[in-house]
C-alpha cells in the first residue's frame, strides 16, 4: 500500500488515511524523500487527523523523516495529532522534540509560509 503525496506549489501535502503498518510506513519514508529530491519542495505538511494510534516504531519513522527531509532542505510540519495519540506518545516517553506541529493542515501551511518567507 502506498500513501499518496500531493504537490501544491513548492509544498508537499500528505494526509495519512490508512492504518500504518511497518511496511507502509517505511515505504512512505522512501517515497517522501524521493519526492522532495525530485521536486525541490521546501516544505512538507503531514496530516495525521485520521490516525488513531502511533506506537514507538511509527513515531521513530516520523521523527526520522523530519530530520532526513531537513537534510534535503525541506521543513516538515506534523498536523492534526489527536489528543488521544498525543497522550499515548507522552506515556511512551516520546515528545518528538524539535518536530514542528500545528493544529490542522491549514495552520500547518501558514506556519511553513511564515517560516520560509518571513
Amino acid at each position: 500500500m502506498r500513501i499518496p503525496i500531493l504537490k501544491l506549489y513548492e509544498y508537499l501535502l500528505i494526509t495519512i488515511q490508512v492504518e500504518l503498518d511497518d511496511r507502509t510506513a517505511i515505504q512512505f519514508q522512501e517515497d517522501l524523500l524521493d519526492k522532495i529530491h525530485e521536486t525541490g519542495a521546501k516544505g512538507v505538511v503531514i496530516d495525521l487527523t485520521t490516525v488513531d494510534m502511533i506506537d514507538s516504531y511509527i513515531a521513530k519513522i516520523l521523527d526520522d523523516v523530519v530530520k532526513m527531509s531537513a537534510l534535503l532542505g525541506a521543513k516538515v510540519v506534523l498536523t492534526g495529532i489527536r489528543p488521544a495519540v498525543a497522550i499515548t506518545l507522552i506515556d511512551l516517553g516520546i515528545n518528538l522534540k524539535g518536530v514542528p506541529t500545528s493544529l490542522d493542515l491549514e495552520k500547518g501551511l501558514e506556519k511553513l509560509q511564515q517560516e520560509l518567507e518571513g
Binding site: I81, P83, I90, L103
Partner: peptide, 12 residues
C-alpha cells in the same frame, strides 16, 4: 511538563 508536551504535539 507532560501536559505542555502533549499540547505541543497536537499543534498548540
Amino acid at each position: 511538563i507532560q501536559a505542555s508536551e502533549a499540547v505541543r504535539l497536537v499543534g498548540s
